[in-house]
Design a binder for these strands. Structure first.
Lengths: 214, 214
DNA sequence: TTTTGTGAATTGCTTCACAGCA
DNA sequence: TGCTGTGAAGCAATTCACAAAA
């Protein structure tokens, strides 16, 4: 399968999941894994797993499977997480503080290196993540982003402030934003946006349990 | 379009987003909205919006558009959020506490009515949400779920405890689980599962900004 | 004129099925 | 034998394009 075609979005979504499973296999000292193993762990068919991986080259051995360590390394390189990636956080409310305290992504290549909030009573205070961070004025955003080569940001401000804060981030050079505000951010294709909306997820579940087969 | 066919998952995902936008239009005193308006707000084509809505009946007026209030009401009924839905939260760590403090979904029809944690030092303490809630022993889960007719749960325990806690929830009668642990929960089709994994989302963004066109 | 609702065309994704390698 | 990689087939979702309604 051609590496130069556009990679389908569903494939990219599953890529991260494959990596997560591979790290689990690795932790359990498994050295090889078949498309069937990976598929079962994630509720996918073996054919799907092979087709997905085929987008990025051929790294399986017929009769054996995939070498866990090698495949994980390749996936990290594809996703860009083989090197540490610095991240900024905008908005130090409940959600923001929980995200900093939650160390779940440090081990996966992401480091929160700067936090911003426009509330003057918060600026200058310290929040505890993997390292203590001073809450900065959004006016410093551009300079800080450049100094730490930050290209990714997490947006966790109240809904009415989201679009404006988002635009500040883009102006500061941020290229990808993970948005926690329940609003569709207006943006062009120079920025990637992913959104997490609690209510939306719960609504999906509500619909699914309401509907006979799903 | 037939109402009895299985509704595609992508359609269901967008349904929630339509509702969110409709509520915004409603707050701005707009009474009608066209498929073009809705599409622009969400980055979708007008044809897509119409096709999606067609799954649930015909409620637009040619030359005019859709009546905002009526459509929002219909969508809530479809999603099951026209009535308040009770939700339980399992795991009162950083993530769990942030989710309770975050009032973002109370206004959308969901109420956290019970919280559980297996840590004995937490059981019996009170956490502050829209109402104060006593942290309960997971042993009480089934009985509490029945008393409050809770069918939806949020899982926010540490990764190694996730699968077990999940199974407790299912045994207690929970039919839909929103999972915050970075692990694929093994489950059959009697339960609906949705997952939010910070690292996965950040990896998506990293990939997108690494790839020329996306 | 504006905008819906919808068949038809198209594009995209997944599953099938099997040749070929270890 | 066990498992990959991949064309071909099948299925699903999106876009097109236009008749009909307000």
């Amino acid at each position: 399968m051609a590496r130069n075609d556009q990679i389908p979005i569903p494939v990219v979504r599953r890529l991260s999941l494959y990596l997560r499973e591979l790290e689990l296999f690795q932790a359990n000292d498994r050295h090889t894994v078949s498309s069937k193993d990976l598929g079962e762990a994630l509720g996918l068919s073996d054919a799907q797993v092979r087709k997905d991986l085929a987008w990025f080259g051929q790294f399986g051995q017929p009769g054996v499977g995939y070498r866990v360590g090698e495949l994980a390394g390749r996936m990290r390189r594809i996703l860009g997480t083989d090197k540490k990636l610095n991240v900024m956080l905008v908005g130090v409310g409940n959600v923001g503080r929980a995200l900093i305290a939650f160390r779940g992504f440090g081990g996966r290549g992401f480091d929160v290196m700067a936090v911003f909030d426009k509330d003057p009573t918060k600026i200058g205070t310290t929040v505890q993540g993997s390292i203590p961070l001073r809450v900065q004025d959004p006016a410093e955003m551009r300079e800080t982003a450049e100094r730490h080569s930050i290209k990714l940001g997490i947006l966790a401000v109240p809904t009415p402030a989201a679009q404006t804060a988002f635009e500040e981030m883009v102006a500061a050079g941020i290229r990808g934003v993970l948005n926690f505000a329940p609003v569709a951010l207006q943006h062009d294709s120079r920025v990637a946006v992913a959104s997490v909306d609690l209510a939306v997820h719960l609504e999906q579940l509500s619909f699914q349990i309401l509907t006979p087969s799903a």
